[in-house]
């Protein structure tokens, strides 16, 4: 039996490079102005999985993501870098999920896959909560090791992991099954591999195949690895009360655009006299010096 690793990944809007057109005039976020990307720390998580696969011949990497149909893009991206297969959880009934409802849905999908190890990024850049990893572990009733920097050693039933904390490092050991979350200080993910890109560029979900004009029937039959599994609520053994909005205890009461109270600022140029004036003010008022 292979050593199954599930990597949890999320497609997120690239909130790091928000341009001036990212906010609409009414103060809401203009999602279309932000490119959708592979959540950065989830790529670090994928790299840790790939490093385990480098060492263990029978390791198998399965990407699991939840999102709209287009999130299949990140499953392909992971395949180009070495993942073996992927599952996309997609259903309107998941809409409005907070971290608790998300974790519940993901934990049910993980139960279907029955991996030895689950690896996730520490947090996603659109929410920065770092909650889904630990909550999936709790729902599965397995241990969690967060803030991982490196998997030092792995065997069929035990991992040794280095964690990066605020003021130092910690090395821990834990038996599988286990969930770990990977910190951004871990090594970056290896790039796409040309051969894998060729192999998986036609990987598709059922929904994507329906959109294709080309006939994929023969290709999908001959190359079953091109099939990206798509799961809806019906594929999970779910209590629907705990999914989506109804399963989300947190509610957004209010969203505000940020309005900074305008101060009467003194405008200066880079001229020597302006800088000298400023420095003299600061020294005279004992702010500096």
């Amino acid at each position: 039996m292979s050593f199954k690793i599930v990597v949890l990944a999320k497609q997120v809007p690239d909130t790091r490079n928000v341009g001036k057109d990212a906010m609409k005039a009414d103060g809401t976020v203009n999602r279309s102005a932000l490119p959708a990307i592979f959540n950065p720390e989830d790529l670090h998580a994928l790299e840790q999985a790939l490093r385990i696969k480098d060492r263990m011949e029978d390791a198998e990497i399965i990407i699991l993501t939840m999102g709209p149909p287009r999130a299949a893009e990140i499953i392909r991206e992971a395949m180009y870098r070495g993942a073996d297969s992927g599952y996309l959880l997609t259903d309107r009934k998941f809409a409005g999920s907070d971290t608790l409802a998300t974790s519940y849905a993901i934990s049910l999908a993980v139960k279907n896959i029955k991996p030895h190890l689950i690896i996730a990024g520490r947090q996603a850049i659109d929410g920065d909560t770092a909650q889904v990893g630990p909550q999936v572990a709790e729902k599965l009733n397995i241990p969690q090791v967060t803030y991982c920097e490196e998997v030092l050693d792995v065997s069929d039933d035990e991992l040794t992991i280095k964690r990066r904390l605020e003021r130092g490092v910690e090395t821990v050991k834990c038996k599988t099954p286990l969930l770990i979350t990977v910190h951004s200080s871990a090594p970056a993910c290896r790039p796409r591999h040309a051969k894998l890109l060729m192999k998986f560029k036609h990987a598709r979900t059922v929904s994507e195949l329906q959109e294709e004009t080309k006939d994929y029937t023969e290709m999908m039959t001959n190359k079953p690895y091109l099939r990206i599994e798509e799961w809806s609520v019906a594929d999970l053994d779910a209590d629907t009360e705990f999914l989506g909005l109804s399963g989300s205890p947190t509610k957004v009461k209010k969203i505000e655009n940020v309005v900074l109270a305008k101060k009467d600022s003194v405008e200066l140029t880079t001229d020597d006299k302006d800088i000298d004036y400023l420095m003299k003010e600061l020294i005279d008022s004992h702010v500096i010096g």
């Binding site: 608790l100 909650q131 909550q135 964690r163």
Partner: peptide
């Protein structure tokens, strides 16, 4: 919201099925 609190609080919130807001 430290490496301890952000590790512990989500696990507790999940067990109690209650809401948690980070940072």
């Amino acid at each position: 919201a430290t490496s301890v609190g952000r590790d512990l609080a989500p696990r507790v919130a999940s067990a109690l099925k209650c809401g948690l807001t980070a940072d």
